[in-house]
Amino acid sequence: MPYEPPTHTVERSLRATTGVKVVAGLDEVGRGAWAGPVTVCAAVTGLRRPPEGLTDSKLLTPKRRAALAVQLESWVTAHALGHSSPQEIDELGMTAALRLAASRALEALPVRPEAVILDGKHDYLGDPWRVRTVIKGDQSCVVVAAASVLAKVRRDAMMAELGVGYEDFGFCDNAGYPSPVHRAALEALGPTPHHRLSWSYLDALPRWQHLKRVRSVPEAASLEAGGQLGFEF
């Protein structure tokens, strides 16, 4: 399907209206998964022409995404990844876990951004960062698209590593997201140490419902039950 390539329009606007020079793009992957971390990539690209074919990672084939990630690693000015573990997601809720992962990514950059372009319409990052939210930023903004590809490729690789010894769950193929293979393994074997135990998938698994965790740090119900910020399956 044809698509418009991402541009530096938002970044140029931020520079022109606020005077900032270092702008980072953030994107996350793993929010809707049953297993594994939520991962956020922070990328800084400057205003250079991006590698051909750059777009939202979800619009790319795995082969093309992996090849593009190799190009991006040497093309971006800087990038860093932050993760929140399944245990942190269970303890804090997805919104706070996203904030934690994003903060870890930003703090790991060798240069501190003066502004951040965040994919989506909700600012889960907040102070002290100057944030511009952009709906479908992973398709329209170069710096966010770069973060999208780098985050997806790295988390997929992590899930393949975590799947060693848990091959029945198909982490190499589903990256911890819902799938028939994943559900069948959960029904037969129960959650692994890599699963999120506060997630509602356990409600449909009577044999394993006793493992479900109640979060000690409450989060607004709408956020984790299919509301504006969170997803559960």
Rank of each mutant, 00 (worst) to 15 (best):
P2G: 03
Y3V: 10
Y3G: 13
P5L: 03
P5Y: 04
P6N: 06
V10I: 10
R12K: 15
R12L: 15
S13Y: 07
S13P: 00
R15V: 09
A16Y: 01
T18Q: 14
K21P: 04
K21N: 12
V23S: 11
G25I: 05
G25T: 07
E28Q: 10
E28L: 07
R31E: 08
W34I: 12
P37R: 00
T39I: 04
T39N: 07
V40S: 06
A43D: 05
R49W: 01
P50Y: 05
E52W: 02
G53I: 04
G53D: 09
G53R: 07
K58S: 14
L60W: 01
K63N: 12
R64C: 07
V70Q: 15
Q71E: 15
L72G: 04
L72A: 05
E73I: 02
E73N: 06
T77G: 11
A78N: 07
A80N: 08
A80E: 10
S84V: 00
E88H: 03
I89N: 01
D90H: 00
T95Q: 14
A96R: 15
A101K: 03
A101P: 03
S103H: 11
A105V: 03
L106F: 13
L109W: 09
P110N: 14
P110W: 03
P113A: 02
V116H: 06
D119A: 07
K121H: 09
D123S: 11
G126A: 06
D127G: 10
R130V: 09
V134Y: 03
V134G: 03
I135R: 09
K136C: 08
D138R: 04
S140V: 13
V142A: 03
V143D: 06
V144F: 10
A147F: 02
S148Q: 06
V149A: 13
L150F: 11
A151F: 09
V153N: 12
R154G: 01
D156S: 13
M159L: 10
A160I: 08
A160Y: 06
A160R: 12
V164R: 03
E167L: 04
F169C: 01
F171Y: 12
G176C: 04
S179E: 08
S179K: 00
A185Q: 11
L186Q: 00
E187D: 14
H194K: 00
S198D: 08
L202M: 10
A204Y: 05
P206F: 07
H210E: 11
R213M: 01
V214L: 03
R215G: 15
R215N: 03
R215C: 08
R215S: 15
S216N: 05
S216G: 13
V217P: 07
A220E: 13
L223M: 04
E224Q: 11
E224V: 02
G226F: 11
G227Y: 10
G227S: 08
G227H: 11
G227C: 08
G227F: 10
